[in-house]
Each structure stands twice: as structure tokens, then as C-alpha cells.
């Protein structure tokens, strides 16, 4: 397919007087992995539901794989997979039975495809286990399998790794890369900024609006108002209280076990150390930090 896989054009959804999604426009190209970030309730899930034709837009339109998402829903759904935040898996069925059941829903009765899907998500050998007994990481892989059983060209994943431990998250993302390498377009929402770093482009939504959609590198260079610094100190609390607004410091937050601040570009280490000392703080180390998407996200939140 030559054209974009998703085209959202002024896509809007209101619930009463609440505007859940507010005139957003973007396009996604074939084979892209696009991450979608934003606070709970900012409209990420509503966007996905419109792209899948599950909700009618109040305004604007979505064209997905060349079809109008709302008026040609069947065509879209035959070609798109969806793993929702609260995926429904039958706990009293086995892994295989769940896949066969959902395969049937999509008209896939081909045993070979079911086996292939099991292999794809790494569940071979677990076919006959009851789903209720699986760990969150395994359930999540089964949910991905269910979303994949009909060989979709486009995959929507809505917070697929929420509540999953770091090891399982890693395995899950390996699967995403494999799919993307096979040409599947992936649209994924997440609260994990490290996952967003792996996406080719990242969209940031807030209060129904799409604030930015760009590569991680471009977001960091365009959105961050200054340079990022890591300040190690035993006085975290004092740092959080005293540093904001002091000298030229633009933002102060926690990062791991230390403080992370944003200062105007070009401010030297010496100058920053002077500002810190003027607040009466003792820093054990002040180091230039590498910008992350978390910095970008936090910058957007404060205005």
C-alpha cells in the first residue's frame, strides 16, 4: 500500500459538553511504530476507538487503510488488530481455546494460523494451560496473539504493558519490533517513557489536543526549553522547594534518586553550581544529562 495507513483529519469527539478529542490531524505511514502519550483521560483511548470505527466522530474523519473508519468499519476491522487496556480473555478457557474462539470471531478457522500465532507470541508449550492461572506477562502475550490472529496490517495497542514487570515488558517489545520488521504498522499508547523512546514517532496528547507528533530526537530538540542537568544531593526535598525559579532554573523534578533540572541552553556547570550553592544546597555531583522523553512530557505538562 502506497498511501498512509491512518489519516486523521480534524478528528473530534464530544461526550455532552466534554470534548474528549479536539480536532486532531495526523498521518501514519506503513510500517511505522507510533507511540502515543498523555495523562489518563486525555483522549488516547477515544482516538483509538474512533480509528477502529467503534465510536462515531462528532466532527472530522478518520481514514484507515483507505477506508472510512466509521462508515466502512467492517473493512477496517478485518485488517486491524486491537489490544485494549482491559482485554477480555476467558479465564476458564485454555490459551489455545481462547485463540480458537477469537480466531473464529474473525473468521479464522485455519489451525495452521492458530499455531503460527502461538509461535509468534511465544506461547508454544502453554497451549493447554488455563488462562486464569497465567501471570500478567503471559496473559498480555495471549491478548497480543488474539489481536494478531487474523494477520492485521495495523495494530492498535492501548497501554499493553501497564502493570507488567520490566522483563516481561522487554519481551513484549521484542515482539513489537518483529511485527514492525514484517511490515505491520503499530500504534501504541504507553505511560512508560522508555518504551516511547523506541518508537519512530511519538505523539503527545493533553486534554483532547494533539500537542506534538514527531521523532523522539526532534521532540527533545524542539520542545525542551533548555539543557538538562542531573543534580545529586542528599537534600532532595530542599532542592525541590528551593531551586524552582532560582537564578535561571526553569524546572526541577525527581529522576531516579536525584534531581533533574532544566536550565537555559548554554548555562555552564560552574554557573549552575553557584545557583545551587546560593540556595544553601550541597550537591555531591552536578552532571549534564541527556534529554529523555520524560523531560519532554514533563515540559508539556507545566504551563
Amino acid at each position: 500500500m502506497a498511501g498512509p495507513v491512518i489519516v486523521a483529519d480534524n478528528l473530534t469527539r464530544r461526550f455532552g459538553d466534554f470534548v474528549a478529542v479536539d480536532h486532531i490531524s495526523f498521518a501514519v505511514q506503513p510500517g511505522e511504530v507510533v507511540g502515543y502519550l498523555g495523562p489518563n483521560g486525555c483522549g488516547k483511548t477515544t482516538t483509538i476507538r474512533m480509528l477502529l470505527g467503534l465510536l462515531q466522530p462528532s466532527d472530522g474523519q478518520a481514514v484507515v487503510m483507505g477506508y472510512d473508519a466509521f462508515h466502512q468499519t467492517e473493512e477496517v476491522r478485518a485488517r486491524a488488530g486491537y489490544m485494549s487496556q482491559k482485554f477480555a480473555i476467558y479465564d476458564d478457557l485454555t490459551v489455545l481455546e481462547n485463540l480458537v474462539f477469537y480466531g473464529g470471531v474473525y473468521g479464522i478457522n485455519d489451525r495452521e494460523r492458530i499455531e503460527e500465532t502461538l509461535g509468534l507470541v511465544g506461547l508454544v508449550g502453554h497451549e493447554h494451560e488455563l488462562t486464569g492461572g497465567l501471570s500478567a506477562g503471559w496473559r498480555q502475550r495471549l491478548a497480543l496473539g488474539i489481536a494478531l490472529v487474523h494477520k492485521p496490517q495495523l495494530l492498535f495497542l492501548d497501554e499493553p504493558t501497564s502493570g507488567v514487570d520490566p522483563t516481561a515488558r522487554r519481551i513484549f517489545w521484542e515482539l513489537i519490533y518483529e511485527l514492525a520488521a514484517q511490515g505491520v504498522t503499530v500504534f501504541v499508547t504507553t505511560h512508560y517513557m522508555d518504551e516511547a523512546e523506541y518508537c519512530e514517532r511519538v505523539g503527545i496528547m493533553r486534554a483532547g489536543k494533539l500537542l506534538a507528533l514527531d521523532t523522539p530526537a526532534a521532540l527533545k530538540s524542539k520542545i525542551l526549553p533548555g539543557d538538562v542537568w542531573d543534580i545529586h544531593t542528599d537534600q532532595l526535598l530542599a532542592g525541590l522547594d528551593l531551586l524552582p525559579g532560582l537564578g535561571s532554573i526553569m524546572r526541577v523534578g525527581l529522576s531516579g534518586d536525584h534531581l533533574r533540572v532544566i536550565c537555559p541552553r548554554g548555562l555552564g556547570k560552574r554557573e549552575l553550581e553557584k545557583v545551587i550553592a546560593s540556595a544553601g544546597l550541597q550537591a555531591t555531583a552536578v552532571e549534564a544529562g541527556e534529554p529523555t522523553l520524560e523531560d519532554v512530557f514533563l515540559s508539556f505538562a507545566k504551563d
Binding site: 502493570g163 526535598l237 525527581l254 512530557f297 505538562a301
Partner: peptide
């Protein structure tokens, strides 16, 4: 018990700043 699971980075920041205040004596 996992108070910040499924929560965005801004909320996690706020939540942790509160925890750090709570455990500090002052």
C-alpha cells in the same frame, strides 16, 4: 500497593514528591 501503575509521568512526579515530604521529618 503499586500506587503509580498505569499513571502518567506528571502524576508520578507529584505522587513521589508527596511521599518524600511525608517521610521527611519536617
Amino acid at each position: 500497593d503499586e500506587p503509580t501503575t498505569g499513571v502518567d509521568p506528571v502524576t508520578r512526579q507529584d505522587f513521589w514528591q508527596m511521599l518524600i515530604r511525608l517521610v521527611s521529618n519536617s
